[in-house]
C-alpha cells in the first residue's frame, strides 16, 4: 500500500467518525473484550488483504495483539477465526445453517452479532483507506476490562437469523437507538448489541449521507452518483441488499 500519496480533503466529520470507531474497537464491548475485538479486526483485515492479493500468506505482517486472545477463546478459537474470515471475504455465502452451527458449537448469539459488527467496521474503514491509497490505520491497543454483557430485554427471533429489537421494544436506555430515518433491517440486524447499532449509524451518517431524505447534503457527489456506487459495491459483493 502507498502512504498518503496526495493531499486529500477528507471531511472533518468523516475523520472524527473513524476516530470514534477506532476508540470503540479497542474497548471492551458487550460480549467481547477489547483484546478479542482487536484480534478479530486483525484477522478480518489479514483475510481480506490476502484475498485481494495485497498480502501473501507467508508474509502476514505482525499482528498488533498477541495471540493470547485466541488462547482465551479455547475451543471456540477455530470457529471464531473461520467465521471472521468468511464474513470478511465471502459473507454472501454464509447461510442460516452456518449461524445455527456456530451456536450449537457454543458461540452465543450476542457474540456472533458483535463479531459481525466488528468485522463489518474494519471492512468499511479499511476499504475507504485502500480506495484512497492511504496506509491502513494501525489497530488500537486493546483496553482492559470486562464486557458489559447487557442483552436487550426486547430482543426477539423472527425476521432474520439473529434476534432483533423492534423500535417499540427498546429498553429505556436504548430509547434513542434508532433515528427517525434509520431503523431498517440493516440497522436492526445488530440490535442485539445496541452499541453496534450506534456505531453503524454513526459511520453511516458520515461515510454515506447524514439525512436519508436529502442524500446529497454536504456531499460532492450527486445522489445518483452516490447510489450508483452503492449499488455496484453491493452487486460486486453478491449482496441482494
Amino acid at each position: 500500500m502507498t502512504s498518503n500519496p496526495i493531499e486529500l480533503p477528507i471531511r472533518k466529520d468523516l475523520l472524527e467518525a473513524i476516530d470514534r470507531a477506532w476508540i470503540r474497537l479497542g474497548r471492551p464491548g458487550t460480549w467481547l473484550t477489547g483484546e478479542e475485538r482487536v484480534g478479530i479486526a486483525d484477522e478480518a483485515r489479514a483475510a481480506k488483504m490476502r484475498d485481494l492479493g495485497f498480502w501473501k500468506e507467508a508474509a502476514h505482517p505482525p499482528i498488533s495483539v498477541a495471540d493470547s486472545w485466541l488462547e482465551k477463546l479455547g475451543g471456540l478459537a477455530d470457529l471464531v477465526v473461520g467465521l471472521v474470515h468468511r464474513i470478511a471475504t465471502e459473507a454472501s455465502r454464509l447461510t442460516e445453517e452456518d449461524y445455527r452451527s456456530a451456536l450449537d458449537r457454543g458461540l452465543t448469539d450476542g457474540q456472533y452479532v458483535e463479531i459481525v459488527g466488528t468485522v463489518a467496521t474494519i471492512a468499511g474503514i479499511d476499504s475507504f483507506h485502500r480506495a484512497l491509497g492511504l496506509s491502513l490505520r494501525e489497530l488500537p491497543n486493546p483496553i482492559a476490562g470486562e464486557p458489559s454483557r447487557r442483552r436487550p430485554t426486547g430482543a426477539q427471533s423472527g425476521g432474520a437469523w439473529v434476534p432483533m429489537v423492534e423500535r417499540s421494544d427498546l429498553d429505556p436506555e436504548d430509547a434513542g437507538l434508532y433515528t427517525k430515518d434509520r431503523d431498517g433491517y440493516v440497522i436492526r440486524a445488530l440490535s442485539l448489541v445496541p452499541d453496534e447499532v450506534r456505531s453503524l449509524i454513526d459511520q453511516s451518517q458520515n461515510f454515506y449521507v447524514r439525512d436519508l431524505s436529502n442524500l446529497a447534503e454536504g456531499r460532492s457527489l450527486s445522489r445518483p452518483q452516490i447510489e450508483m456506487i452503492a449499488s455496484r459495491v453491493s452487486a460486486l459483493n453478491e449482496c441482494f441488499y
Binding site: G124, V162, A189, L200, N237, Y241
Partner: peptide, 13 residues
C-alpha cells in the same frame, strides 16, 4: 466503505 460494511452486516445476519 459504507457499503463494504453494510453488505457484511446484511449477509451475515
Amino acid at each position: 466503505g459504507n457499503f463494504e460494511r453494510n453488505v457484511r452486516v446484511a449477509d451475515a445476519t
